[in-house]
């Protein structure tokens, strides 16, 4: 079966093509501006969609007529952005007369991680701009064991990066700065059970601007933020008795965060996995894969069921594809 997936929850318009064995294509175009302006991001997605689609088809060597399924990310995400992907998916499904499946973006991150690593039943640390969650499968659902009580960790990093005058998204430049930081400045460490919050850290870090070296501030801020999510992940591992940690989401690119997860797992004797980066950040292949496994588990959708769900929670997803 060949499945095409469209991702458009936030700043990435991604189109991926997969079959049961591998990812055949995974193309994307990322909106960049000052943060995410919903309408401008949606305009970007609409503008680049055709080009990204063509390049995905070309890379995979698959023609439209060979597709068996269209999937798209139905939520959670930014409404105007989501609707671009959903509209394109409906159009393709109707024109090609093939089934359509709308999938949950967060769950797709986990499933593509399991598909491309040896993780089987992991605790997932999902860290991106808008989402920061600790998720594990239990009692027939992907349950959120811990999550941010305010902003996403990537959002925090970008806000701080922009205050330093870095270009959005700031991940790479921030990683550079962090690696140069030496002095640890006190930043409040907020963890409540398995939940965490970042706005307090951000406020403190911004107060140091102009008084301390920017690499030291960046280093202290991100050390603190990473420590909280790693600690919460460890609690989730202890709680659930699971022995695997899967790190995914755009922030999985951070070398320091990877290192911390690795040390934590090693000290516990648990295993640690990170998918290839193109499948960690927002991408179309994970959507294509998720649609495929849901379709194969018997799920069907009518066009009327494909309205986007901006606030679709991870634990609301009916997991039909796992025994």
């Amino acid at each position: 079966m060949i499945s095409l997936g469209i991702e458009s929850t936030a700043h990435t318009l991604g189109i991926g093509i997969v079959n049961e064995k591998e990812v055949l294509a995974n193309e994307s175009s990322v909106y960049s501006g000052e943060g995410i302006h919903p309408r401008k991001a949606a305009d970007h997605h609409a503008r680049v969609l055709k080009g990204v689609l063509e390049s995905a088809l070309r890379k995979s060597g698959v023609s439209l007529e060979n597709l068996d399924l269209i999937s798209f990310s139905q939520g959670p995400g930014i409404g105007p952005c989501l609707r671009i992907g959903a509209t394109a998916a409906r159009t393709l499904s109707l024109r090609l007369e093939i089934p359509i499946i709308g999938v949950n973006h967060c769950v797709s991150h986990i499933e593509i991680g399991k598909f491309t690593t040896e993780a089987r039943d992991p605790v997932t640390l999902y860290v991106s701009g808008g989402n920061t969650q600790i998720i594990a499968y239990t009692a027939k659902r992907y349950r959120v064991f811990g999550e941010t009580l305010d902003i996403g960790i990537g959002n925090m990093q970008d806000t701080f990066g922009r205050a330093l005058g870095l270009k959005f998204p700031c991940g790479k430049e921030m990683d550079n700065l962090i690696s140069k930081g030496k002095k640890y400045l006190h930043i409040p460490y907020t963890i409540k059970g398995m939940d965490f919050s970042f706005s307090g850290m951000l406020t403190e870090a911004l107060k140091y601007l102009g008084k301390e070296k920017k690499e030291d501030i960046a280093f202290s801020l991100m050390e603190t933020a990473f420590s909280t999510v790693v600690e919460a992940s460890e609690r989730a591992l202890a709680h659930t008795g699971k022995r695997e940690l899967l790190l995914t989401g755009g922030m999985a690119a951070s070398p320091r965060l990877r290192e911390m997860c690795e040390i934590m797992c090693k000290e516990r004797g648990d295993r640690f996995y990170v998918p290839p980066f193109d499948l960690c950040r927002d991408n179309g292949a994970m959507i294509a894969y998720q649609g495929m496994i849901e379709y194969k588990s018997g799920k069907r959708m009518r066009i009327e069921d494909t309205a986007v769900k901006q606030k679709w929670r991870t634990d609301e997803v009916d997991v039909t594809w796992l025994s």
Binding site: Y184, Y189, E223, T224, S227, V230, E231, E234, E259, M260, C261, I263, M264, K266, E267
Partner: peptide, 13 residues
């Protein structure tokens, strides 16, 4: 002790 945390942060916590 948690090896993933900075020494001083770890001790403080």
């Amino acid at each position: 002790k948690k090896g993933y945390r900075l020494g001083e942060m770890d001790l403080h916590l």
